[in-house]
Design a protein around this nucleic acid. Sequence first.
DNA 1: TTTTCGTTGTTCTT
DNA 2: AAGAACAACGAAAA
Length: 556
Amino acid sequence: MRSSLCLTSNLQGSNPLMAFGSGSLVWFRKGLRIHDNPALEFASKGTDFLYPVFVVDPHYMKPDPDAFSPGSSLAGLNRIRFLLESLVDLDSNLKKLGSRLLVLKGEPGEVIIRCLEQWNVKKLCFEYDTEPYYQAMDVRVKEYASAAGIEVFSPVSHTLFNPADIIQKNGGKPPLTYQSFLKLAGQPSWASCPLSITSTSLPPVGDFGNCKISEVPTVTELGYEDTGQDELTPFRGGESEALKRLRDSISDNQWVANFEKPKGDPSAFLKPATTVLSPYLKFGCLSSRYFYQCLQDIYKNVKKHTSPPVSLVGQLLWREFFYTVAFGTPNFDQMKDSRICKQIPWNNNEDLLAAWRDARTGYPWIDAIMVQLRKWGWMHHLARHCVACFLTRGDLFVHWEKGRDVFGRLLIDSDWAINNGNWLWLSCSSFFYQYNRIYSPVSFGKKYDPNGEYIRHFLPVLKDMPKEYIYEPWTAPLSIQTKAKCIVGKDYPRPVVFHDSASKECKRRMGEAYALNQKLNGLVSEQDLHSLRRKLDEDQNHDDTKAKRQRQKLIG
DNA sequence: TTTTCGTTGTTCTT
DNA sequence: AAGAACAACGAAAA
């Protein structure tokens, strides 16, 4: 039915040759690569024309002047730039194979359906995506395609495993611990045969009629002002860069074999302690399966190597773990109505949140990390732990969803499942429950970087502060502050909270919240939370008054 | 029902 | 550099 309609319209079109061929559309969203790309490979087979499409969603790309940092309403400029660089590289790699990237603009689902209406497409191919945003969009597109008689091919290639398989193996529920995930997962099904990582040539691009096709836009074309180079991330996007980075990272077999994540130095910034492949995995510039295969090849050739969870393969499996739980858990990205999330009476203090977000908590270790996040869009895993713990259960007791949003905007590797999973983890809302283990905003950084070089680099206002005071500048005598040209309270903020008392109060609140969750068997209503919050605030005021009275007694 | 174990804490002691 | 105390949760296995 549809093909005959298409034939008619093509015969009437400007290019009568189109009537004698049919095309495939490969829709890029993530998976911005040529190597190990099953959707691209399948789309290219047995077809006369290939339409490689990326849809620029203005909602994701358009400048939002109200946002707290340059960028759109959803993404910081660093990530938008990284995406554009990845698209330019994809276009250039497609051109080497005789094709090109067709860039369209609009709401992606609608645009793809319009393309399917107007072009002679027999096959629609795109990588399967487990995020709720794509799940909803893909249902609509698939419905349209099948009604129109178009074959849809949507392979799982963003992850090593199909999260749905793991969940099914576990009786319909996702595993909630890493170890149980490992047992269920085993070896990936594709691991026994080599992946397809080279492509010789691609079919020519089909006629796109009067559809508005453009080149990959520049940030300026999207409406962003030129910003200083020192404000931008040092990491460049794209498959070529990803493969180069991969080769560099794994060139030293011993380094790969001995890799242990928890032993990395979060303050290393000249040469980060990890691979920094996460942004490339996020956009699929690097295939996680290819990375996995490379690592397995190395493990085969060394005497001994580290294992999950700490090894490099272990890191890839963490990603799988969070993808699986995220896919199998309704409302994974919020506290309310989440089966796995502890109900905790977080406060709603906008001032504390803003101080954390804008790197003015008064704790140099925390603020330096937040500056690195703002400028680079990337920090070491443990650095993320420190600031996430500080914002939530450690010091400020601000809701993890607020921190999640800030990371979600500013990180170039921000990934829905992993970002939410880690915030759940660090806030002791799920997966991890040892709320007494709090990262010290002073001593944790110090043990890696006693001289405070990391702080001096990202907070130049403190660059002349002696190392004795650089983690706690408010303790420096005024003469030292003057000499360092940094007066606390004027040039650099006083601490927003005292860590000792704040963390103690946080622990108390976590303890009471846990007790309530246990008592109510996890079914904590908003009313229950509200009452607990009021009780906790009253207790705190009571304690504060008592302390004040004691202090006065001592003075008097 | 009980036991085991958990990617990456801090601080003090030896 | 390594170990103990701290305080003590939940998921999964037994």
